[in-house]
Amino acid sequence: MEAMDIVEANYIKEIIAKGLRDDGRKAMDYRNIKVTKGVLGNAEGSAQVELGMTKVLAGVKLSIEEPMDDTPNLGNFMVSAELLPLASENYETGPPSPESIELARVVDRGIRAGNCIDLESLLIEEGKVWTVFADIYVLNYDGNLFDAASIAVMSALADTKVPKVENGEAKREERSAKLKLNNIVSSCTFGKFNNTILLDTNASEEKAMDGRITIATDGKAIRAIQKGLKGGFFKNEIEDAMNIALEKHEFLKGVITGE
């Protein structure tokens, strides 16, 4: 860490210890969330999410592919993430970083474990299924990429329309049917600072953060969890995080569906 970052991290830790946040929020408050769907015409589905100053774009493309050997009647789903160099002075061009792979895989796991996409509806004919590619583009980093990316991908999937198929080929100009979703999964990510836990950390808080935990739920069950960074969590802290994530689900579901 640069010397300035250490000074800032210490300052952030001090104010958090006093029960404050540098943007005036309470511990379990989200920043403003704005979702704009259908921002791209060529993609089958898209959404841009603003979570405070964090901006994440998700694009969905559908391709006709062969099914996996062990799931011949199911479509496929794949999430990738790019931490674009234009999003932060700390991001660099090059092969996918461990951070971007973790981000994509955690978003993927929540949506997959939640059976959100009706993969059976993606069977075209024997040996042909749709593969749903969701790509996460981080445009501006201001903390909590996990929740922003999860909302962006869920929203883009909710925006996705499946192209028509003629003679076994996609006719992309004609999209009619909406991608069938069975479930909506929302993600809540918490940061740990000594003994304090905060929801939806911003960039300056993340410089001071010891540990991170992401809980993906569908409001009833826990669908995915990822603990990150070096700081550990005690059982009661994990239980508190699960309770808050379950409570926040209705609100986040509304953000995703626009209802």
Binding site: A113, K220, A221, I222, Q226, K227, G232, F233, K235
Partner: peptide, 30 residues
């Protein structure tokens, strides 16, 4: 359908790695 790998520090039971996917209630997670 569910798998939860965990790494734990035995001196205080602090959870150092926790990943989960599948379908579990919060009581089952505990």
């Amino acid at each position: 359908d569910s798998d939860v790998p965990m790494a734990i520090s035995p001196r205080n039971n602090e959870v150092l790695l926790l990943q989960m996917d599948g379908h579990m209630t919060k009581e089952e997670m505990s």
